[in-house]
Design a protein around this nucleic acid. Structure first.
Lengths: 207, 207
DNA sequence: GTCTATACCATGATAGAC
DNA sequence: GTCTATCATGGTATAGAC
């Protein structure tokens, strides 16, 4: 058995520290979005000095990119952990439900819809893009098989279905519904799931 | 007949100037969003000095609020101009289609989804809120009657349907689909309309 | 690697002449 | 009301000591 490469205490500490920074960024990004999140706040949230932040990440952009990449990785892990025998359509529904539930608890959506600057910046980040492409492929495969079993519409391109699911995971309607205070979190998730998969219209009654 | 109150040349000039400012803000807001739009850019786009901008609008916030209010007014005008005999569901579909088409041509969506700060700021603007409530009532009435004729699902609350339609008008999927370059604007609009009203799933086949 | 202190700059907002 | 010139703030990033 190959001996596990030992990490020095310092190296372990570094990893823990960076993880706690990423966690703080997730929280602030979800609360305020990219522009309104300041490096001072991140530093304060972690409990270190701002300058120390820059020892770990060279810029605010790269910090946000690391957080978003981490997010995609979490999603990939979640998707890969689904039981293989589960039908594709159930997996897809489960993934959207999971994403919405994470978001209801103050987590981040997968898609950086909220900011054009961050969007541009991420497009130039090869590590992030590569992860996103992995996720796209994985979900694209699920969509394809759900289409062939007749569980999803075959007249829509895969990309359209994929983007629709992504978009639903960061739909601003969730925030407004939550603000109204009329519905429980579970009800809001159910509404989002249903409008996504079933639509707003009534299917013509069977003859 | 009551004589129309005459507007002096200066007053007319003022109105024209403010309209051109609003127009520039629409353009920049659609391109870059609130945070990334600077007052220098607005001034440059209009062709006046930044200080002059502040003679018309006391702050960047109030400028954005004026632009958003103008947007809601346009939407209200459009909705009220629909023929009275048109069925409610057709009106609703037409409104979403119109909003998407405006957006495809570089216009702004109705809902300030993209920015949490602007959202907060607008919530404190009584003029804007009052217009939004007018629009909500108008569209809410249409949704209600479309539900009673069986064209829209009766199991969803009116607010959920309303928010879903608003959200579709500013769905980030549109940007990504446009970036991909695989589909025409008309196709993209059709995709959005269909995923909104028909959903992603296949209705169970009639027995 | 962490800190304090600071450079530097973009940008919202204003002063004051015309 | 428009301009040029300027201020003030706040935020990213860095220097340099420990």
């Amino acid at each position: 058995m190959i001996p596990t490469p030992k990490l020095s205490f310092k190296q372990q500490q570094l990893i823990v520290r960076e993880a706690s920074i990423i966690k703080a960024v997730h929280k602030l990004l979800a609360q305020k979005g990219y522009e309104l999140m300041t490096m001072d706040e991140v530093a304060a949230e972690v409990g270190i000095a701002k300058a120390s932040l820059y020892k770990h990440f060279v810029s605010k952009e790269s910090l946000a990119a690391a957080a978003m990449t981490d997010l995609i990785e979490n999603t990939l892990t979640h998707v890969r952990a689904l039981p293989p025998e589960m039908p594709a359509i159930d997996k897809l529904r489960g993934i959207l439900q999971w994403a919405l539930e994470v978001r209801m608890q103050g987590g981040l959506p997968t898609l950086p819809s909220d900011n054009k600057f961050l969007r541009e910046s991420l497009l130039g980040n090869t590590r992030y893009i590569s992860k996103v492409m992995d996720l796209n492929e994985l979900l694209g495969g699920l969509i394809d098989s759900a289409r062939t079993t007749g569980a999803l519409r075959a007249d829509l391109p895969i990309e359209v279905i994929l983007l629709t699911i992504y978009a639903r995971s960061c739909d601003p309607s969730v925030d407004y519904l939550k603000m109204m205070g009329l519905y429980t979190d579970a009800q809001i998730v159910a509404f989002m799931m249903s409008t996504c998969f079933d639509g707003l219209g009534v299917a013509p009654a069977p003859i």
